[in-house]
Design a binder for these strands. Structure first.
Length: 812
RNA sequence: GGGCGCAUAGCUCAGCGGGAGAGCGCUCGCUUCACACGCGAGAGGUCCCUGGUUCGAUCCCAGGUGCGCCCA
């Protein structure tokens, strides 16, 4: 063993040993019946590991390794998501460099090409998870587009269809002109943009042309799609206008003035032009007032045939024409600069066109109901609690789900149409044909399902559903799911209701919503901002153990800024552990672990280890990983190294067998506690233990051991004496031989340059005594404060007086 | 516009009714036979502001200021 611990090589060696020896496999090393199951959130098949994955992987791996050691039948399920729009995007970009579009290839060839590309460059994240030491059962990797998984998706869709929850409707959707597909609200990102707010006067149809109502719009081109002007019913400015008609500019169409409470009287002029074809709010208002829904912008984002002479123009070009038209006729009131948030596609950042199109939808009111129930009854619990409330609220107001996408990469809808217009939903084309009748020509719906539709099935489709496999029986329902906050509505809620729908049980009991790791300056981490931190670089530089430690240490119930210092702290912890192990092992010879404490510090460290065990168990059970990291850090540095190891050193050097045996036993326990967080360095040291047998990864977790509990505070007096000595050079008198021996071994007073000035220490103690005396002299305090607090103050006062006396005695 | 949260040492954060804490950074002293990725000591804080509750507030409540995230 070298003086400096180097994770290079060590980590890779253990990663391949653990995996090849089968310790990652579901149920490996199990000694009890209960299972413990976590499904990894399936990462994008085209993606790379980012810090969020690394944090989430560290969290899940701690839980999985801990439960594996406790003897549970653990399964940590790996796999990938096909990520419809972003994967298709990548391949289309690649085609573009060859001057091709997907339409040049055709659907079949395009999908084949995408598969080919994935085989070459996809699926990198599981390799990166291995480098983190993540003990996923890699043999069981699943992909949402695998044959079996696809059958699950189809089966689920048909089931929803049979439930009557799937329907097709013309609705306003978020249309991405670049991807030529509808996307869900959740795939739209809002970005601040500088715009112009144009104020336009619409004259009354029955007026003199001078009067009218002024509206404000950021998109003059949509004026052509106006079907009404709405005002707030309580807005006195416009009360008289309700029911009258206005002339829409350019097209000179006559439209009514209507009253609707959704109009904000404070925005613009308080009059809202209603364009149901191109604005979601207007669409809803239009439906309620039975207004027509003309569309003047096409799927390509340009003005369409309903825009008359403006057909074919971009919206910007149309804006210019319309504004000129308004100016000529004196109807342009003013134009103001206006900064506001605009919806853009999260993948390509193209401005979203809200427009009406025919899409497939899944009703949500009915499926959400049992999920809300499960959350209210806390059959599923989100952590932290604030996210639990958010999950319930988001399910309560969840709109119907647009499940169709106009893409090629994904699960094609199992829907066929006959020439007569009969719509058939079936598991297979054969079945559809059978139902339509032989010889009837069938046309399959070209759309694919939203990627999240397949993700919703992850906890059971990965186990073989819809087949009744042994894995499904053994590992469903799972226990924990851990993910980022922004994915609660996209994924967590849908897994919960889907699980209840097809399995009759929620897929897990606990959902951990982990911190978002921000850049050190507080901005979001992103490649485009250049604020990203590559976890693989962190692993290269400091090791996987250090990286895991650092991420867990900064994790919280809120967003956190990345801190390289935390990872360095982890590296120092690994090195410290390595070196204290060297000390013990170099002096233990062949002595094997035996708990044979013969001295105070040995009983003390065993008690401290048991205390830490309890704290760590509590913290992990509460998903508080930072607290556990902190407890383990101080147990190792302060208790084990600074006090225990220093205290036993003289006796260890003399090769007292019981000292060595107990030290090896204490070290073993420390390694067990640290293993879930720092798996590599602990396994490496474990392999050097005298008589090492088996792997730490499948060694049993510590049982509670309160035999030494009475000595858990046994070093307090010596530690106080050490502080006093180091500060003042004054040795206070200690009671027992054990105490004096430990003090001598740890403090090494003969080495210290003694100043011999007890003055500052005496002053400090006198100040403490004065403070405690003042508190106890306050009758209201003594009368009102809880007796434990008052007693505590009395005890402190006693102790300070004792210490002061000891100090004065020693000095004298 | 709606929701959630945060403001504590130079930095990153913990503490959340009874003496202000950790890691890093900084200063000083130590190459002591596990470790200089170490050991020891130290400096550094109106715990954002203003009120209120309380014997007692960094902690609870109200208002304010600043910042962040999510959603529309």
């Amino acid at each position: 063993m070298k003086p400096l611990y180097t994770p290079d090589g060590v980590e890779a060696r253990w990663q391949s040993a653990w995996e090849s020896e089968g310790h990652y496999a579901a149920g490996a090393g199990a000694t009890r019946e209960e299972s413990y199951v976590i499904c990894v959130p399936p990462p994008n098949v085209t993606g790379d590991l980012h810090l969020g994955h690394a944090l989430n992987g560290s969290i899940q791996d701690v839980l999985v390794r801990w439960h594996r050691m406790r003897g549970y039948r653990t399964l940590w399920q790996p796999g990938y998501d096909h990520a419809g729009i972003s994967t298709q995007n990548v391949v289309e970009k690649q085609l573009a460099t060859e001057g091709l579009t997907r339409h040049d290839l055709g659907r079949e060839a395009f999908v084949a090409r995408t598969w080919e590309w994935l085989e070459l460059t996809g699926r990198t994240i599981m390799r990166q998870y291995r480098r983190l030491g993540a003990s996923l059962d890699y043999e069981r990797e699943r992909f949402t587009l695998d044959e079996g998984y696809s059958r699950a998706v189809t089966t689920f869709f048909v089931r929803l269809w049979d439930r009557g929850w799937i329907y097709r409707a013309n609705r306003i959707v978020n249309w991405c002109p670049h991807h030529q597909t509808a996307i869900s609200d959740l795939e739209v990102v809002h970005e601040e943009m500088d715009d112009v707010l144009t104020y336009v006067r619409y004259p009354f149809a029955d007026g003199d042309g001078e009067d009218g109502i002024v509206i404000a719009t950021v998109r003059p081109a949509t004026i052509l799609g106006d079907v009404a002007v709405a005002v707030h019913p309580g807005d006195e400015r416009y009360a008289a206008a309700i029911g009258r008609h206005l002339v829409v500019p350019y097209l000179e169409r006559h439209v009514p003035v209507i009253a609707d409470e959704r109009v904000d009287p404070a925005f613009g002029t308080g009059a809202l032009k209603i364009t149901p074809g191109h604005d979601p709010t207007d669409f809803v208002i239009g439906r309620d007032h039975d207004l027509p829904e003309p569309m003047v912008i096409g799927f390509d984002g340009r003005m369409n045939e309903h825009a008359g002479a403006l057909r074919g123009l971009t919206q910007a070009e149309a804006d210019v024409v319309i504004i000129a038209w308004l100016k000529e006729r004196g109807r342009l009131v003013k134009r103001d600069n206006y900064r506001h948030a605009v919806g853009t596609c999260e993948r390509c950042h193209t401005r979203i066109e809200p427009l009406i199109s025919l899409q497939w939808w899944c009703r949500m009111e009915e499926p959400a109901r049992p999920a809300i129930e499960a959350l209210r009854e806390r059959t599923v619990r989100f952590h932290p609690e604030s996210q639990h409330r958010f999950a319930i609220a988001s399910l309560e107001e969840t709109p119907d789900w647009c499940v169709s996408r106009q893409l090629w990469w994904g699960h094609q809808l199992p829907i066929w149409t006959t020439p007569d217009g009969e719509v058939i939903c079936a598991l297979t084309e054969e079945e559809a044909q059978e139902r339509a009748g032989a010889g009837v020509a069938l046309t399959r719906d070209p759309d694919v399902l939203d990627t999240w539709f397949s993700s919703a099935l992850w906890p059971f489709a990965t186990l073989g559903w819809p087949d009744e496999t042994p894995e499904l029986a053994a590992y469903y329902p799972g226990n924990v799911n851990s993910t980022a906050r922004e994915i609660i509505r996209l994924w967590e809620n849908r897994m919960i209701w889907a699980g209840l729908e097809v399995m009759g049980e929620v897929p897990f009991a606990d959902v951990i919503i982990h911190s978002t790791v921000l850049a050190t300056d507080g901005r979001r981490m992103s490649k485009s901002l250049g604020t990203g931190v590559d976890p693989i670089e962190m692993i290269d530089a400091h090791g996987a153990d250090a990286t895991r430690y650092g991420l867990l240490k900064i994790s919280s119930t809120q967003d956190v800024r990345f801190s390289p210092g935390a990872i360095e702290e982890g590296r120092k912890l690994a090195n410290k552990l390595w070196n204290v192990s060297r000390l013990i092992l170099q002096n233990a010879g062949d002595v094997e672990a035996r708990v044979e404490p013969t001295a105070l510090e040995e009983r003390w460290i065993l008690a401290r280890i048991d205390g830490a065990r309890e704290q760590v168990e509590e913290a992990w059970a509460a998903f508080d990983f930072a607290t556990a990291a902190n407890v383990l850090y101080h147990l190792t540095f302060d208790d084990f190294c600074d006090w225990y190891a220093e205290a036993i050193k003289p006796r260890l050097y003399e090769h007292e067998p019981s000292v060595a045996a107990t030290a090896v036993a204490a070290l073993e326990r420390l390694l067990v506690l640290l293993h879930p967080m720092l798996p590599h360095v602990t396994e490496e040291i474990w392999s050097h233990l005298p008589g090492a047998q088996g792997r730490l990864i499948v060694s049993p977790w510590l049982e509670p051991d309160d035999r030494f509990l009475p000595d858990v505070g046994a070093l307090e007096r010596i530690q106080a004496a050490a502080v006093t000595f180091r500060r003042s050079g004054v040795q206070v008198v200690l009671d027992s031989d054990d105490e004096r021996r430990i003090f001598a071994a740890v403090v090494r007073p003969e080495r210290q340059k003694v100043t011999g000035d007890a003055g500052p220490e005496i002053a400090r103690l006198q100040k403490e005594i004065a403070r405690a005396e003042a508190m106890l002299a306050n009758d209201t305090f003594v009368a009102s404060a809880p007796s434990a607090v008052v007693d505590g103050e009395r005890e402190k006062l006693e102790r300070f007086r004792r210490e002061l006396e000891a100090l004065s005695t020693a000095e004298g």
